[in-house]
Amino acid sequence: MSIVHTTGLGSYFIAPMIGIIVGGAIGAGAVIGLVSSQTSVPPNVDAPYVVYGNS
């Protein structure tokens, strides 16, 4: 059973276009998000020792 139907010349454009639009949107969103989320990881605790990580 098919779940996607396209006909004629349109099929050659629709499929790549879906890929480009969705992929592009997600990629752009990720890059923008990346920039804004740089501060989301808690900074290391200020200490005279090397702190292994933040739990």
Partner: peptide, 19 residues
């Protein structure tokens, strides 16, 4: 496999690789 259009099926694969 369930997608009838042969042009859409590869795009689905590509999309799942890209995401």
């Amino acid at each position: 496999e369930k997608v009838a259009d042969r042009a859409v099926a590869p795009s689905l694969i590509v999309l799942t690789v890209v995401i």
